[in-house]
Amino acid sequence: MSKIHVTTVVNGDEVEFLADPRETLLDCLRDHLGLTGSKEGCGTGDCGACSVTVDGVLVSSCLMLGVEAQGKRIATIEGMANGEELHPLQRQFVEHAALQCGFCTPGILVAAKALLEKNPDPTETEVRYWLAGNLCRCTGYDKIIRAVMDAASEMRGAA
């Protein structure tokens, strides 16, 4: 099958790649652009490990074709820190021990950031429902929820 040339913006950088029309955005990020921070846990949009934002909207990159990225702005975990300065969510996750194996962590961080941009002061229930699309098998979510709540509080304080 002939490949399609795709030009898009990932984490602020213009990038281009040749995508087989059957490849997902996740395949393209990982295999063509070397951005392996987004993970494939299920390939069916049920685990959220591949979460990215496309034009600011949270999506499972395993459910979107790579060719659909043409002309869009994609943000992945690799673009979350500002150089050496971690995003408050990233720092709170480490400080709260909110990860064990760490495999679901990039997707959860991307999803949580999208939540806090929409709702800077979420309740615990709102955080739990927003993150219901992100599976974590290690932690039981307790420390993840606390880290997100504390990051939200820190970001409100800083604003």
Binding site: I77, M80, A81, L86, F93, V94, F103, P106
Partner: peptide
């Protein structure tokens, strides 16, 4: 921790 919150950790 840093590797695992930045997507750098290699699985």
């Amino acid at each position: 921790g840093l590797d695992k919150v930045t997507g750098r950790a290699r699985y």
